[in-house]
Design a binder for these strands. Structure first.
Length: 427
RNA sequence: UCCCGCGUAGCUCAGCUGGUAGAGCAGACGGCUGUUAACCGUCGGGUCGCAGGUUCGAGUCCUGCCGCGGGAGCCA
């Protein structure tokens, strides 16, 4: 029997197993709030109605001890959840030492040091459940649209957008790196399956200390053959809208625990505004926020841009110098490339970076050389342009940033079970 | 790497222009028939991040270092 099923068993004797969330022991009555992963229920232990040994055990219980409670289900408006259990037997499964995390405020460092125990807290459970639902929504959306999931390697040679921010490791005497993207491999699977995606952890050795950065984060990277940059943005807005709608549909309770303002999410429906980089620069300058064409947009500019709209916004076609080597040149303005970022509202920043890929072998090679990248490491990637090249586009969506935005949490480290931060590898 | 802020009890914090180290919570003990982070009483609990300096005297002022947080850059 799980706690979520208790309302259907009012008046019946049941046994539930779980962990003690909170505990209040009085002289003749004790209240045990039990959490079993599906919900919480308050057990009421009345001394006068029980054998001495049961009462004796009840008075010695501690927070987070694992127990089995047997009793009769009863509806009671005074109980959290509306139902409670009149206890007639208690089994101690695993006693708990003094639990470090009390039902009160704690500092960030302390909580992260105790992340393995912090996971049991209400808001942490709610956030991680939203994450799990978002992950499921991602798979469902793409599966329904005939995407094939491709698992890409985590151990790689030097590839990706730029070296220098890669975690290095030893691979039988050879230098290897932890993947910072699966995109190049996903591209290779396009001619095999037409629409593919990869979804896995990615690693960036950037020394970023902000609420939007992790050194290990999960990224979903769809890649679609015969899609141009506009098709790419169409897919992105449908995708993000689907994910948000799913969270609103199935995570109401969690979002309530997190005190999320749902009106900020309900407006997330296609179409999203689309504004070109050049238009952004013009508008910034018109608003007396001087900005020189050619520079990459910074965090300040991104916040300004997202304040112009009530939903996520696409900024497309950035200057070539500001973007990665594999992005396709814009035929209408060769200073720029066919790409887009998707900026989340409320300061959560870039949740997607996407582009149409350069499909011309010569131009791609030129770009690799311009960037000073090791040509020989990309031979297989260039092969894709030699053996039946084709127009294609794709993007990467940051899972933790997306879930951070949906849940409205102050830092994305809460939306991954065990965050890896610049100075945190434990637990 | 740079900028700003913070390090005091197990936890969260207060401690004023320098003058004998404090509170709440947690813990132990006692009390209390329905609590919602219960409440009331008693008790134990400290290398004030580390090192140096100024001073009769430093938790407090100065310098350096270490740790943490946020931000910039970079990105999802």
């Amino acid at each position: 029997m799980t706690i979520q099923d208790l309302p259907r068993h009012t008046g019946e004797p049941v046994t539930v197993t779980g962990w003690i969330a909170t505990l209040r022991v009085h002289a003749r009555v004790a209240f045990i709030v039990l959490r079993d992963g599906t919900g919480v229920v308050q057990g009421v232990v009345v001394k006068s109605q029980l054998p001495d040994d049961v009462w004796e055990l009840a008075t010695t219980l501690t927070q987070e001890s694992c127990i089995a409670l047997t009793g009769v289900v009863r509806a009671d408006a005074r109980a959290p959840g509306g139902h409670e259990l009149t206890v007639n037997a208690i089994e101690l499964i695993g006693a708990s030492d003094e639990f470090p995390i009390q039902p009160k405020e704690h500092g960030v460092e302390f909580l992260l040091d105790h992340r393995h125990l912090w996971l049991r807290s209400n808001k942490q459970r709610a956030g991680l459940r939203v994450r799990a639902e978002v992950e499921q929504a991602i798979h469902d959306f793409l599966y329904e649209r005939d995407f094939v999931r491709i698992d890409t390697p985590i151990l790689t040679g030097a590839i990706g957008e730029s070296a220098g921010t890669l975690f290095e490791t030893d691979y039988f005497g050879e230098r290897a790196f932890l993947a910072q993207t699966g995109q190049l491999y996903a591209e290779c699977a396009c001619p095999a399956f037409r629409k593919v995606y990869c979804f896995g952890p990615t690693f960036r050795a950037e020394k970023s200390k902000t609420r939007r950065h992790l050194t290990e984060f999960w990224m979903i990277e769809p890649e679609v053959a015969f899609a141009d940059s506009n098709d790419n943005m169409d897919l992105q807005e449908e995708f993000v809208s689907y994910i948000v709608a799913r969270a609103l549909e199935r995570c109401r309770g969690e979002l309530e625990v997190l005190e999320r303002d749902l009106s900020m999410l309900e407006s997330v429906k296609p179409p999203f505004p689309r504004i070109s980089y050049t238009e952004v620069v013009d508008r910034l300058n018109a608003e007396q926020r001087p900005f020189q064409w050619g520079r990459d947009l910074g965090a300040v500019e991104e916040t300004t841009i997202s304040s112009w709209f009530d939903r996520p916004v696409f900024v497309y076609n950035y200057p070539r110098e500001a973007k990665a080597f594999y992005m396709k040149e814009n035929p209408d303005d060769p200073r720029t490339v066919l790409c887009n970022d998707l900026l989340a509202p409320e300061g959560y920043g870039e949740i997607i970076g996407g582009s149409q890929r350069e499909d011309d072998a010569d131009r791609l090679l030129t770009r690799i050389r311009e960037e000073g990248l090791p040509e020989e490491a990309y031979d297989w990637y260039l092969d894709l342009r030699r053996y039946g090249t084709f127009p294609h586009s794709g993007f990467g969506l940051g899972l933790e940033r997306t879930v951070g935005w949906i849940t409205g949490r102050p830092h994305i480290r809460e939306l991954v079970p065990f965050p890896r931060l610049i100075n945190r590898l434990k637990p």
